[in-house]
């Protein structure tokens, strides 16, 4: 092999010899990153599939379980409760967060000074950890010493963490509070990339603000919407931290989303096998959603985005 390469390079100019050299040197640079990624992300990903067919209590020996974990989990009504809750929170969160983030993104992309100042404050929740947000909201919601009393709004004085519907509503609100800033940032960037000439042309054609929004801003933001939605939808599978600290899955099992169900089965009930089954389901849903949303965006995102410029 090597003799043919050198033979080919010889009659060529200096350039071709060097490109051959580059080809052989560059791939090595990817090895450290690939190593970490394969060992601590890809292997665990495969490992979770293996463990879903195993018996393990988290401490002792690992034994084979055959299809047992799968049959027991798939016939457990708790799984379908968790699945339903996960999708419900995913869809409602998307419906709540997307319009708010999009409008705030357009708003903060404006050049006015006060908007820039507001944007600085909008991003504050990005700095807090989910644990901190959950703990702060628990204090905020205290009926006697929290917001309800402070603002004089008695309807806020509810047993937020004690009633299933209220707890769900609260979780969706807190998720929006925490994550809208991030998506606002993405939309703000998207809006700023729209060529000004498009608006100028629309103005010449006499299009009003609302028409411009629907005929220029929205279509131009297509790929931004897909990016943001992918992150939002796939990310919604991972609202674990917040819900774990805020409700712990309660009251009852009314906020026990899949990720939490997995944790509780694995690390509280010491049933790593069934927990791995849930994890596999999580991965499959995540990948399926990501692929579906990519399809929506078309195959060649980068190329088509440049077309508009």
């Amino acid at each position: 092999m090597s003799s043919t390469t050198s033979h080919r390079a010889l009659p060529g100019t200096q350039k071709t010899r060097e490109t051959v050299k580059q080809k052989s040197a560059l791939p090595w640079l990817t090895l450290p990153a690939l190593f970490f990624f394969v060992v601590f992300a890809v292997i665990p990903l495969l490992g979770v599939l293996v463990l879903s067919f195993a018996n393990w209590d988290g401490i002792g020996a690992i034994g084979a379980a055959g299809m047992e974990n799968w049959t027991s989990v798939l016939s457990d009504p708790e799984l379908y409760n968790s699945l339903g809750l996960t999708f419900m929170i995913m869809i409602v969160s998307w419906l709540v967060q997307t319009p708010i983030s999009l409008l705030l993104g357009v708003f903060t992309a404006g050049t006015q000074r006060y908007r820039a100042a507001l944007a600085v404050l909008y991003f504050l929740p990005l700095l807090l950890s989910s644990a901190a947000v959950a703990i702060a909201y628990k204090a905020l919601l205290d009926p006697n010493f929290g917001l309800a009393m402070g603002l004089g709004l008695p309807f806020l004085a509810q047993d937020w963490l004690g009633v299933p519907q209220l707890a769900l509503g609260l979780i969706i609100f807190v998720i929006a509070w925490q994550f809208v800033p991030f998506h606002t940032l993405i939309y703000q960037g998207g809006v700023r990339q729209i060529p000004k000439s498009l608006y100028e042309a629309a103005q010449i054609d006499g299009a009003g603000t609302i028409k411009q929004f629907f005929h220029i801003t929205l279509p131009q933001l297509k790929y931004t919407i897909i990016t943001s939605s992918t992150l939002m939808v796939v990310g919604s599978l991972t609202y674990f931290d917040l819900i774990f600290v805020l409700t712990g899955g309660g009251p009852g099992n009314s906020t026990r989303i899949l990720a939490l169900d997995m944790y509780l089965r694995g690390f509280r009930a010491n049933l790593m096998g069934p927990a791995s089954v849930i994890a596999v389901i999580l991965v499959v849903i995540g990948l399926a959603l990501a692929l579906f949303l990519q399809r929506l965006g078309g195959k060649d995102q980068q190329g088509s985005q440049l077309e508009g410029m």
């Binding site: 992300a41 665990p44 490992g47 463990l51 997995m262 999580l282």
Partner: peptide, 16 residues
Amino acid sequence: GLAIPLQATIIPIYLM
């Protein structure tokens, strides 16, 4: 890899 949720791999990571 962007689409792999960290949570889903936590049990094998724990084992490793």
